[in-house]
Simulated assay, not measured.
Amino acid sequence: MTQSFQRIWSYLACVLFSIGLIACTGDPLISGLDPFAPMVFKEGTTAMPLNPPNKSTLQSFYVSPQAIFKFSVDTDSILIGADGITRYIVVMTSPSGDQQVQYEGIRCDSFQWRIYGNLEEGKWRASPLSAWRAINSNTPNRYQAALAQGAFCNFNSQEKNIKTILSALGPNGFTGNTKPTNSNGLFAN
């Protein structure tokens, strides 16, 4: 009789312990902590760079055979944000040698880009009408797509390791002119 009583007591203790754990978690609809709810994007604050791009850390990258401009990113300016945005300075050089310098950000989760400001006469000017735009992969000067697919994103996730990004931007490792594939050879979305 003692063994059966101990067995019943063990089962009862396990049930009470399980009920206690369930009670501690609470109702996700009441607590607002639904683990299956979609994440809401909240962009962090973005400050303009303090300096123009550093010529010694400019890394040119390939965009497409139809690209008219030459594109470079200042590797010292790359910031991997906790908000899921990778921010960077890009330098676009026309065939005549004129340059446009912009401070931009890329979101890998939504495959979007945003311009934060331009370098005008040696000073950064914020872009007041800046908004998130879809990255277009089908234009000759598709440098945002090249950066996202070749270095800043790992499919639809932000690359968090700066060494991986810098290695990917190198001329021997850059794959920005191709769409990444998974291990089955299927194109990523």
Rank of each mutant, 00 (worst) to 15 (best):
I19Y: 04
F41A: 11
Q59L: 01
Y103I: 07
E120M: 11
F187K: 07
Q102L: 12
T75H: 06
A188W: 13
F174D: 05
Y62K: 05
Q102I: 11
P49S: 06
I106Q: 02
A145R: 04
N141A: 10
N154D: 11
Y62I: 03
S10W: 06
G185C: 08
V15A: 11
D76T: 10
G84Y: 09
S4L: 15
L29A: 08
N182G: 12
R142Q: 08
V40N: 00
T86H: 05
I85A: 03
S18N: 04
P53N: 03
F111W: 13
I8P: 00
A23M: 08
I106L: 06
V63F: 01
G97E: 06
V40R: 01
V101H: 03
G173K: 09
C24T: 14
L169A: 01
D83F: 06
F36V: 01
I89N: 01
E121K: 12
Q102S: 12
G20Q: 00
V40I: 12
Q102D: 09
F155H: 07
I135A: 01
S64Y: 03
F187G: 02
F111T: 03
I135E: 03
T86V: 14
T75M: 04
V73N: 01
T25C: 12
R142P: 00
G32Y: 15
N156V: 12
G84I: 04
V91T: 09
S127P: 00
M1I: 08
D109C: 03
I78W: 13
T57I: 06
C153H: 02
I22Q: 10
F61I: 02
A145D: 06
R114Y: 09
C14L: 15
N161Y: 09
A151Q: 03
M92R: 14
W9L: 14
I19Q: 01
G176D: 04
F5R: 14
W124I: 02
S96F: 06
I19S: 05
N141Y: 06
Y11M: 13
K42E: 15
P38N: 10
Q144T: 11
G176A: 05
R125N: 13
K42V: 15
S96K: 11
M39V: 11
W9K: 10
G185V: 07
V15T: 08
S110Q: 10
N177S: 10
A47G: 03
N182E: 07
S130W: 14
Q149G: 04
